[in-house]
Amino acid sequence: MRLIKYFTLVLLTTTMTGQELQSQKEKNLWNDFTYDIGNVFGGVGYSYSRPFHWKGNDWANFGYLTGGTLLLFTVDDEFIDWKNGFEQDVPDLIKDYGNKYGAPENNYMLTGGVYLAGLFTKNEKLRRTGVLLISSATAGGFLQQVSKRIIGRARPKSGASSATFDPLHLDRVYDYDSFPSGHAMLAFSNAYAIAKQFKSPWVKGALYTVGMIPGLVRVIDDFHWISDVAFSTVLSIFIVESIDKYLDSKYDEKYNDQKPKNVSWNLSFGPNTLGVSLHF
């Protein structure tokens, strides 16, 4: 009987030791990398599938977004005329930042840098942030490239009005690829995702402000209408939120574990009201 207990103890000890070694073996750089890349594509797919799962409030927010965009559409030309009065007063530094930061190549340098820092330092929270940044940029970037070709809206610098369209092209038609704004979408996606790391509303507000600069600069430089930028900014929030929800089930590390669970974004739209509100 003692012999049986002895062999049972040895077997259990060997099994537990083997499991521990296997667990340590699995926690290597390559496995973390492949796991994260899988979550990047999983997050993109999850964000694209969300409209099939929307409920009443989700459709209401999408309706507000559509209605708000159409409302701004009616004043696009007037806004371009208005901004021409102070365009020359905007510092070149702000313009350079706005035009270069939102470009895809620079965007992926930032997002990739954040992710690699988390990967090599074995910081799961930073890894997750990098995955959120990359997947949000990929989802938004692909969506806006396809939308540009389908919609074919004229840019302000083309000289055409905001209601001019040349839709349904497989190839990109320059000067007719205004809607939506890729710079605004990529820049604000980054700002919104990074702001999730902080609890302070002042830090969040500062990051949101910096994230909106590229979109506004693109309006000032006649690359986009204000409705392009507004739509792209709000859409980037939807994308980041959906992917972040997906990543909750993939990583143990959460953002600000003590934050309220009922944090939500809502759009408000009325005869004299258009806005985005954060409830917490």
Rank of each mutant, 00 (worst) to 15 (best):
L72P: 00
Y48N: 02
E20R: 15
F79V: 04
L11A: 15
F33H: 02
Y6S: 12
S232L: 05
G68C: 08
L12M: 14
R172W: 11
S232Y: 03
D76L: 01
A103D: 15
T13Y: 14
K100C: 13
S242D: 12
I151P: 09
R149H: 06
K245E: 14
N272A: 08
G38A: 06
V75P: 00
V263F: 06
N39P: 06
K27F: 10
Y115P: 00
D166E: 06
F165D: 09
M16N: 11
K261L: 10
R149A: 04
F231H: 02
K83H: 11
V10D: 12
H279T: 14
N190D: 09
I80E: 01
D171P: 03
Y101C: 04
W265I: 07
S236V: 02
L133K: 06
L278W: 12
Q197E: 12
I150V: 15
E87S: 13
T34P: 00
F223M: 03
T66F: 13
H224N: 00
D92E: 14
T34V: 06
S147P: 05
L216P: 00
I194R: 07
G18E: 11
S232K: 10
A191L: 03
T34H: 05
L278E: 11
P201L: 10
T8P: 10
R50T: 10
Y174F: 08
S136R: 03
V210L: 13
N99M: 10
N99E: 08
Y46H: 05
D248I: 08
K204H: 12
F86D: 09
N256R: 15
G215D: 03
D166A: 14
G68I: 03
S236C: 11
L116K: 03
Q145K: 10
D32N: 09
I94C: 07
R218A: 00
T66M: 13
F62S: 11
T129P: 04
E20D: 15
Y115K: 02
T138V: 08
Q19W: 06
